[in-house]
């Protein structure tokens, strides 16, 4: 488990502000979904929390450590945006991709131990029968399960996901959310994910953070759902 402490965070791309004075405290074992319109800074926030970008103002702490220090301990799993980059077309089997997650965190792991972890992860996310298939031959939902299995193979305390359900059908999307909720509930992994699917995301997440340059809303997902039903676009401007 991991707690996330974001204080006074601001970030701009070439002078264009994307995030302004974000303050966010996520407790250990939470499942938080970040919502917001296109270009609102959701992916930027995830990358700042992951330490892939440096804050221009403010700080990010994970269990009191900087993201760069935290990730060196191998406690962070990251699932990047799948579509539009290399991963979906990568010429590797499911087993090879999940193994990358193991060797990324434990470079000196033995072959037998790595295989054992891969077996366990594939069974856990329900794709054990696909282990010898090429990832590019799988459906979008199956590919995302592989990505989650890879991220989990390093045994993380914090799982960061950037739109893991984009481009996949509703049924597959629901299965991904169920899997994340189960990881959060059964293993106590803190989950922070970006999504566009307000209905599904708020159904499974415990908390919601709405971003539109600044933080518009941060709180209980049930409260957000009831408010959102009354005013569908209120999250753009702050609930």
């Amino acid at each position: 488990m991991c707690n996330i402490d974001v204080t006074g965070l601001s970030f701009a791309y070439r002078g264009r502000p994307v995030l302004t004075d974000i303050n966010l405290k996520v407790d250990k074992g939470s499942f938080v979904v970040i919502l917001g319109p296109n270009g609102s800074g959701k992916s930027t926030l995830i990358k700042l929390v992951a330490g892939l970008l440096e804050p221009q103002q403010g700080t990010v702490h994970l269990d009191g450590l900087s993201p760069q220090t935290y990730r060196k301990q191998g406690l962070m799993g990251y699932v990047p945006q799948n579509y539009g980059n290399n991963t979906a077309a990568f010429p590797a089997t499911v087993e090879e991709v999940v193994r990358l997650g193991v060797i990324a965190q434990q470079p000196r792991v033995s072959r037998t131990a790595a295989r054992h972890i891969v077996d366990h992860m594939l069974s856990f996310v329900g794709i054990a029968e696909l282990r010898h298939r090429r990832i590019s031959d799988l459906s979008g939902g199956q590919q995302q399960r592989v990505m989650v299995a890879r991220a989990l193979a390093g045994n993380p305390r914090l799982l960061l996901l950037d739109e893991p359900t984009s481009g996949i059908d509703m049924e597959a999307s629901a299965r991904i959310y169920e899997l994340l909720a189960s990881l959060n509930h059964n293993l106590g992994i803190t989950v922070l994910m970006v999504s566009h699917d307000i209905g599904k995301a708020t159904q499974y997440a415990s908390q919601v953070a709405c971003i539109n340059n600044g933080l518009c809303y941060f709180g209980d997902s049930k409260h957000f759902r009831s408010h959102y039903k009354e005013s569908p676009h209120s999250w753009y401007y702050g609930a």
Binding site: K47, A50, G51, L52, R71, K72, G74, M76, Y78, P80, N85, N86, T87, F90, A92, E96, V97, L100, I103, A104, Q105, P107, R150, G154
Partner: peptide, 19 residues
Amino acid sequence: FDKLMLIAFDEDVALLAGI
């Protein structure tokens, strides 16, 4: 081999793995 494969797979993921 493993590092090159991980970077080819996704450079951000490789960076987060401490490579």
